[in-house]
């Protein structure tokens, strides 16, 4: 069939799809060409074409600057902690909720723990800055219990802990819902069979529930690994202050800072680096998951 023929035949569908096509071309594909800026010394007055090509110079500058290396390290540390601790929290929460007999209460907890996920980090950041400040309620409780106050917001270690904790606080409820959905899909016959074989409650969790969750866990893990250079810009931007820069300045804040000082080449280069690492991580972990599971798990 000819091109014209194909087009004519599916005229209705193609017209219908046109806005979508335009949208993705305009708002997603065209801006992708911006990565060219990473290879230029972009001087705005000189224009896009007039600015000098510099090859990999921006990337060399990046990896030669202690500033960026620090941002890279912080990004890696924070996201590893988030992943390491934050990944399992929703699984545990879901398992515990699943064991709860009183379904009304279960729903209640589910609703309550889910709420934080609905709110932006502007709001949550604001709330935490109030709650964890030196005269805030947490510190007053600390004073009562341990006779000491903690500088959650200005002490490096405490601040990182706070970031990780609040991240878990925000996302565990949401994550748990995904796992609960998967749990609800487990066939009761599996449990019945295991019980007949004499399995106790712990063994049911160990040998029935967890294996059934494994695919979901793997897929979410792969997706999360792709985000290894996402240390949570929204969260950090709304919670940090210069005194904890040393541990909380991440790639995204670095990109924004250099954008504002109009170091556009450098800023774009950092962004490109992050995108590429994310892509590589997803592909690699997907490959690994498929390899290890004999082609069974994976997101494509």
């Amino acid at each position: 069939m000819t091109v014209e023929g194909t087009i004519r035949k599916h005229r209705g569908l193609l017209w219908m799809f046109l806005p979508c096509l335009l949208y993705f071309v305009i708002f997603h594909y065209i801006p992708m060409f911006g990565i060219i800026l990473a290879f230029k010394d972009y001087v705005i007055g000189e224009g896009f074409m007039g600015s000098r090509w510099v090859g990999w110079e921006n990337f060399e500058t990046l990896f030669g600057s202690s500033d960026f290396l620090r941002a890279l390290r912080n990004t890696f540390v924070i996201s590893t902690l988030r992943l390491g601790l934050g990944f399992f929290a929703p699984i545990i929460l879901a398992l515990l909720l699943n064991e709860l007999r009183w379904s009304g209460f279960r729903r209640g907890i589910q609703i309550v723990t889910y709420i934080p996920y609905l709110l932006s980090w502007v709001i949550l950041g604001g709330i935490f800055l109030l709650v964890f400040s030196i005269d805030g309620p947490v510190n007053r409780l600390m004073l009562l219990l341990f006779d000491t106050k903690v500088r959650f917001l200005t002490d490096d270690l405490w601040f990182i802990s706070l970031l990780v904790f609040t991240h878990i606080w925000q996302s565990a409820g949401y994550g748990a819902v995904i796992y609960l959905a998967a749990l609800a899909g487990i066939s009761p016959t599996l449990y019945e069979a295991a019980t007949i074989d004499g399995a106790n409650r712990w063994q049911l969790v160990r040998f029935v529930t967890l294996p059934s969750l494994a695919p979901t866990i793997v897929v979410l893990l792969i997706l999360n690994l792709g985000l290894i250079l996402d240390a949570g810009f929204d969260q950090i931007f709304n919670m940090y202050n210069p005194i904890v820069y040393d541990v909380s300045d991440i790639i995204d804040t670095y990109v924004l800072r250099h954008l504002i000082s109009l170091d556009i080449g450098l800023s774009t280069a950092a962004g490109v680096f992050k995108s590429v690492v994310g892509l590589v991580m997803v592909v690699a972990s997907n490959y690994l998951a498929r390899y290890l599971s004999g082609d069974e798990y994976g997101i494509w």
Binding site: V25, I26, Y29, I30, M32, F33, G34, I36, L37, I44, G45, E46, G47, F48, M49, G50
Partner: peptide
């Protein structure tokens, strides 16, 4: 088309030399 558009877009700055 995408490539041409992109250059127009980015070159939009050039007219401000």
């Amino acid at each position: 088309v995408i490539v041409i558009f992109s250059f127009f877009l980015l070159e939009g700055c050039a007219k401000r030399t």
